[in-house]
Simulated scan of single mutants.
Amino acid sequence: MSESNKDNTTHFGFSEVPVDEKVKRVADVFHSVAGKYDLMNDLMSGGVHRLWKRITIERSGARPGHTILDIAGGTGDLTKKFSRIVGRDGKVILADINDSMLKVGRDKLIDSGTAGNVEYIQANAECLPFADNTFDIITIAFGLRNVTDKDAALKSMHRVLKPGGKLMVLEFSKTNNPVLSKLYDVYSFNILPQMGKLIANDAESYRYLAESIRMHPDQETLKDMMKTAGLVNCHYENMTGGVVALHTGIKP
């Protein structure tokens, strides 16, 4: 289920844009919000994003000596925790397609005293610049919905996982609770852009982020996409009533 179609267009939020234009437009969004990204995450989620990420770490099975890839790692929340777990014999690569986000993440981790077992690489999830069978664990948190060709990205992640390695996709998803869904819509399309304008002086970027969540595949669809990419034992865990879901798959 790639977002692109035979007319060579794809979704940018609720709009249709040429495929080769989406990467630049998504990049512009994250160049704009990078400096306020952590603050906006806390405000947007009431701090709950920290719980979602902690659950992801707990479910990862990361151990000392592991090699881990944190795709769309942004400001490094997962990388920081993984760095402590894998220790000096392990390695964590913080990868992001956006150099502004990568710089913010690198500066934040260096300032926090994160160990020297972290590398920073600008990379496109659709064509990861790593050898086959490299990583024990790959995470992508709140990044897959911004990828133009999700099928290509999932196949690329599968390729660079070691046999037995685990892919974890943490992403906003679909809630089946009608009350929660109504509140979520009001929040996303009315309050969120105003928060973006007030805090980051950028309402449009946060309007796009809200729209991109609605265009992302639902839980079952994403699970099937992971299976199609070659992963097995694929399953998902809903959090906060399905507002967020953690998908997991294993490379056989």
Rank of each mutant, 00 (worst) to 15 (best):
Y208L: 10
L209F: 02
M226P: 09
S45Q: 12
V243T: 14
R84G: 08
L51M: 14
F189T: 02
A203R: 12
T9H: 08
L144G: 01
K81E: 15
D7V: 12
D202C: 08
A115W: 02
T79E: 02
A125S: 15
N201A: 08
G249A: 08
A245G: 05
D70H: 03
I140Y: 07
T10Y: 07
F172I: 11
I71F: 05
V160K: 09
M239P: 01
Q122R: 14
F130A: 09
R145D: 03
D136I: 04
G242N: 01
D77Y: 11
S212I: 04
V160Q: 07
E119Q: 14
I138P: 07
Q219G: 13
E16Q: 15
K103H: 00
P217M: 12
V19M: 11
E119H: 09
A229D: 03
A27F: 03
T134F: 10
H49S: 11
N146T: 08
S173E: 01
I140G: 11
S212E: 02
R63P: 00
L246T: 04
I85R: 09
D70C: 08
G73P: 06
D132W: 09
K166N: 11
T148N: 13
F12Q: 04
K174R: 15
N133K: 14
R145Q: 05
I93R: 01
M168Y: 10
G230A: 07
T79C: 05
F142K: 03
I110E: 15
G143N: 06
A123E: 11
Y206L: 04
M225S: 06
L222A: 04
T148H: 04
A153F: 08
T148P: 04
K155Q: 14
L144S: 02
A229I: 13
K162N: 08
Q194M: 13
N177S: 15
H235A: 10
E220G: 07
T221C: 03
N190W: 05
K22Q: 13
E237R: 15
T67F: 08
L39E: 14
D42C: 13
S173Y: 07
Y120W: 12
N8I: 01
T9G: 05
L94R: 02
L51R: 15
T148I: 08
K166I: 10
I97T: 00
G143K: 02
E171V: 06
R207G: 00
L246F: 12
D136V: 03
H11C: 01
L102P: 07
G73L: 02
G65K: 03
I250C: 07
I93Y: 05
Q219A: 14
Y206T: 12
L144W: 03
T67V: 14
K24P: 00
E126Q: 15
I250N: 10
G241C: 09
L128E: 03
G164F: 06
N124P: 13
G87P: 05
L144V: 13
N41Y: 06
G116M: 08
L192Y: 12
P193C: 10
C234G: 12
A203G: 11
E126R: 14
K182Q: 10
A153R: 07
G241N: 11
N5D: 15
H216N: 15
G143R: 05
F82K: 06
V19R: 09
P178S: 10
I213P: 03
A200Y: 00
S173G: 01
K103F: 00
E237V: 03
D70V: 06
A245N: 05
Q122C: 10
E58Y: 05
N233T: 06
D151R: 11
I55S: 01
P217D: 13
